[in-house]
Write a protein that binds this DNA or RNA. Structure first.
Lengths: 257, 257
DNA sequence: CCAAAAGTGTTGTTTTTACACCCATGA
DNA sequence: TCATGGGTGTAAAAACAACACTTTTGG
């Protein structure tokens, strides 16, 4: 629960525990109901949206810091994540905005030394399985929840830029990272996998060509099961053959989308 | 010229001018005589090799810091560079090694506070035209010079890792960055361009297929000139049509190598 | 039985690969 | 004139793009 004391305690510890000037922001991608989703925080006492972020302990790698941050935000222990860019514009949070944000969440300038710093932020993207996430807001947020990528509204600071950059990178790495494996549940249907690709690429794909290609990669294992319950023909369930997926990614899945 | 005073002065200013804990390292690629080259520093009073690196001023972007650093090391004003990874292992310079390095260059521990910090280093790769570089060592180095990528010897700290990572990234971005444009002089022959590609990829390419593909991209302008002086048939000179090159890169040059 | 989505093959086109001979130049 | 590297075309194979009908399911 949020109290004056917990702020003060956190701020006191921040200065002793964290490296100054360095932060990280996480673009957490999920996939649900045919839509790409991202996990966003709503800042207390404002309607402003922000990416989940954090700071780096004095003897911790950036990756460990990101994993720690995402464990707090999602409850997940093993998150797939990749750093993708460092955002270092000294004006990425300009002093005027910064003051507004701090006041909005009830931090007066006397206690705000930690947040008054310039931060160079390392952007990470994470791929998580939507249904396994248990969103928890951080100390400065009222809520932590999923938003559709489209129509999500505007984010604070340069977080829109960070998000756009993450999406561009995700697209470009579709053939080099186990994107499907990390965003889908263990069992999934081919149409679901295709919708995931379409959501990431932002364009429709041909069903038959898509399936042929996926089969050609040899990374799918067809299960002896169908997804019933839809009002239509029951699609077959598949899972990834992780061994072969990893192996195929070493050279990169061939072909453009 | 290096003096005790200049060390002391530099170290004093470092603490006031630079952000703590953040550094950058540059992998500067050049191309000459059919070989990929990298620019390395030889540390004073040792035979150890290091990547050119630097620190970030308090109101400067990382990119500006890298450009500033490379201006000092190469004399170039406009360097093509890209950040590619952040190296944040707390043990990337372990305290034992660190002490040795500092002693090697004549810094006693009392003055070494700046270098005794943990640094998180942002890796940049730069593509420069070999013949335009005028290498200048930094304060801690005896020499700054070109080395062949192969047989270069071992670098300090995690600089071998940084270099290998840069090379991997460079390979992966061959179709998305104006690599040829930045590594070759304005006029070049097709066999030179091909050797560049072969050097980056580390494998031979078919001459005819290479040329067909380059022409198909439509990024080359054939000049009305030949390179004479070789003991053989004089090859035609080309230059890049930068407009079309940039345009072609927007979607990425298609096809794998 | 109907609506909606799933499954499946073929064909034409483009891209990629493999490969060999003649030409120009300086020594 | 010879050795060396530069320039050029074709054919076979592979990858890709476009496209339509039948099947299954729940309502």
């Amino acid at each position: 629960m949020l109290t004056e004391d917990s702020y003060t305690e956190w701020l006191r510890r921040a200065e002793t525990d964290f490296l100054p000037h360095i932060s990280l922001d996480c673009v957490v991608f999920g996939f649900h109901a045919g839509q790409l989703k991202i996990l966003l925080l709503k800042i207390r006492n404002t309607e402003q949206l922000a990416l989940p972020g954090g700071f780096v302990l004095k003897e911790e790698t950036l990756e460990a810091a990101a994993i720690r941050t995402l464990r707090e935000r999602t409850g997940l222990e093993n998150v797939f994540l990749q750093q993708f860019h460092v955002f270092s514009d000294p004006l990425r949070s300009d002093p005027a905005n910064r003051a507004r944000h701090l006041e909005g969440i009830g931090i007066d300038s006397a206690r705000a030394a930690w947040f008054a710093q310039r931060f160079i932020s390392v952007g990470f993207y994470a791929l998580v399985e939507f249904s396994e996430v248990d969103p928890h807001p951080d100390m400065f947020s009222a809520t932590c929840s999923w938003f559709n990528l489209e129509g999500r509204g505007t984010l604070i600071l340069d977080h829109d830029l960070i998000l756009e950059t993450a999406l561009t990178v995700l697209r470009s790495q579709l053939n080099n990272q186990p994107v499907g494996y990390n965003l889908l549940p263990r069992k999934f249907t081919l149409p679901e996998l295709q919708k995931l690709y379409e959501a990431i690429l932002g364009k429709p794909l041909d069903r038959r060509n898509f399936q042929r290609r996926m089969f050609a990669y040899g990374i799918l294992r067809c299960l002896d099961e169908k997804r019933t319950g839809g009002a239509h023909k029951a699609p077959l369930l598949y899972s990834f053959d992780l061994r072969k997926y990893q192996k195929a990614l070493k050279t990169g899945l061939h072909g453009g989308w």
